[in-house]
Structure formats: structure tokens, C-alpha cells
Write a protein that binds this DNA or RNA. Structure first.
Lengths: 158, 158
DNA sequence: ATTTTAGTGTCATATAGTGGTATTTTGTGG
DNA sequence: CCACAAAATACCACTATATGACACTAAAAT
């Protein structure tokens, strides 16, 4: 499961967004159009297909609820979640309580990112992207170092 | 049984809360609208459907009642426990003796969490979430380590 | 006995959410 | 470049949900 691509969309006056056909087709058919929306770590919302969320949830459920740290982690993952469905025109509703995490405008961007889809306010994304481009060299270096470590290499040996 | 999602609600001046339709539908029909409210370990209240509470209770029952700590823990879990029902508008009453564990305001949040639903004072939840977000990296690491251990892996071998 | 407080039931109303259709835009093949 | 189909969007009508208001009962306190 990997969503890819950036799609410029608009939100109607009721807060509904039409899922672009290309992305829509990538949702597992057996899920009959239900998925989760959450606040993302970045300044946007994020969509998880049900299957992805359920896997996450199953892991969280195993955490000992009497351990403060584990408990707070589980809470952190649950806060800000909403379950939504596509209507028969492949639109979905972003609830009033969530729209405040986007922006004021009707222009949003759906951004495929691995197993999930981010929902950005168009202006915010551009701003975020600009700052990322400005630092892209540093970001890349840090990422490279991290990946090397993961793969058991020493940066110095490269 | 898995309740999911965060719902912003209001408590009326008599202490009643309307259960959001989406959550309401998830309650087992055969329980004809009766469930338990208790104090949670976190700074909030918690709703258990009858069946779920009975399981939780069974777990507590196993604690050695001659161990002072375990005994007091069991007591703490039972104090404030109340059975409530939905009225015909799907509202339920939070008794006066329990409201003090929420907050002063009318803004509450219902938070689906596995087999139960937490009732938070909106402000408290935000505060709790902020502290969680501030430490999210550490929380995630500990949780990951715990899960690895559960699955019989050693973190060092990964 | 009277007053206060807690809790319950019902109704009215605003608005959040849903569904459908018409219209415009976009993309594709001829 | 045109014709056609599919996708996206705007629009309107309707329904369900949430919530405040109010009246009433039961229980407790003075």
C-alpha cells in the first residue's frame, strides 16, 4: 500500500472534499469507503485507510494501560481521530472540529505519502515546502546519516 | 468492539451529555442503553459498555485482596462507579459526584479508546495532549521497545 | 412545611451533515 | 482540432443531529 502524488482539490462550503479518482481507486475495495482522519504531526490532517489504522490500533491495544508512559503514547495516537466515509460521489466530510487545523481557504492539497494521505491547506503547504527547499541539503545529510546507521554502516566508511 | 474517534460535546446545565450519533450506534443493541461510568486512571471519566466493564471487573477481582496496595487500587477503581442509561434523546447524565473529576466548563470531549470511551474536560485534554506531543519522540521509543519485547524481539538485535 | 437541589422528559430550533443533480472542466482517442 | 467520456465542482433541497429552554418530579435540607 503506497499512495503517491499531489492533487490540488477544493473543499465545498460544507467542508467536503472530492477524493481524486486516481487516489480513490487505491483504497481497498473491501473497506466500503471507511477511513480515519487524524491531526498530523505536521501542520495538516492525515488520512489512514481503515486497514492501516486497525493495524496501528491493534499494536496500541497491547500496551499496558497501567504504565503512564505507554498510556500517554496510546492517548496521543487516539486524540484528534475521526472516522469518515466516502459518499456516493467519492466525497468525504471534514468535520467542523477538524477544519480549523487546515486553513481558511477552500484550496487544499492531497499529498500521497507512503501508507497515508496528507490533507494540506494549499498556502501552508507551499510555505512549508519553501522552507524545506531552503534547507534541503542539510535535511538530506541528516537523513543519509540516519539511513546509514539503520543499515549498519558507519558514515565515515562511506 | 472498538470505539474510535474524538467528539467535541457540550454538557448542559444539568450535567447531561448527548452521545454523538456515530458513537451511539456502536453500543451493543442488546444492552438497551445501559452502561457504566467510572473514574479513569487518566484525569477524566470513562464509559464502559456493560460487557466490557464486566471483563475489567473480572480482572480486578483477581487481585489479591490481602495485599494493601492491590486492595487499594481495586477500591480506587470502584469508587465513583455508576450505572447510567441513555434517555430517549441519547443523552446521559453525569452525576454531581462525578462532575468534579471533569472540569468547570461545559466543553467536554468524548474520546473513543479501544473498548471504552473517555470523557475529558476539553481544556484538560488539550493540556494533556500538548505535554504528550512535546515528548512524543520519547513516548514512541518506549512504546516501540515495549512492543518489540512483547513480540519476543530484542531491540539491540534489530 | 417550605425551599433547595438533583435529576428527567419533552419540545423547538439552528445547523451540521447528506444526497442528488446539473454544469463545467479536464483528459483521451479519433 | 473535435467529439466524447470521465471527473470535478457548484448548487439546491432535505434530513438528522445537537442543544437550549422549560416545566416538572423526587429527594434532601433547613
Amino acid at each position: 500500500m503506497a499512495f503517491r502524488g499531489q492533487y490540488d482539490c477544493t473543499m465545498d462550503d460544507k467542508g467536503r472534499i472530492k477524493m481524486p479518482a486516481t487516489l480513490r481507486k487505491q483504497f481497498p475495495a473491501e473497506e466500503k469507503g471507511a477511513f480515519m482522519i487524524a491531526k498530523d504531526i505536521e501542520e495538516c490532517l492525515v488520512i489512514y485507510p481503515m486497514k492501516e489504522w486497525e493495524e496501528q490500533e491493534a499494536r496500541l491495544m497491547k500496551l499496558n494501560q497501567f504504565d503512564p508512559t505507554l498510556r500517554q503514547f496510546a492517548s496521543a495516537m487516539m486524540i484528534g481521530l475521526t472516522e469518515v466515509q466516502f459518499d456516493n460521489a467519492d466525497r468525504f466530510l471534514v468535520q467542523k472540529s477538524l477544519t480549523k487545523y487546515l486553513g481558511s481557504s477552500k484550496d487544499v492539497v492531497l499529498l500521497g505519502k507512503f501508507n497515508r494521505i496528507q490533507i494540506w491547506d494549499a498556502a501552508k503547504l507551499e510555505q512549508y515546502n519553501n522552507s524545506g527547499q531552503a534547507n534541503i541539503k542539510q535535511l538530506a545529510e541528516e537523513a543519509a546519516a540516519y539511513m546509514d546507521k539503520l543499515e549498519g554502516k558507519e558514515k565515515s566508511k562511506q
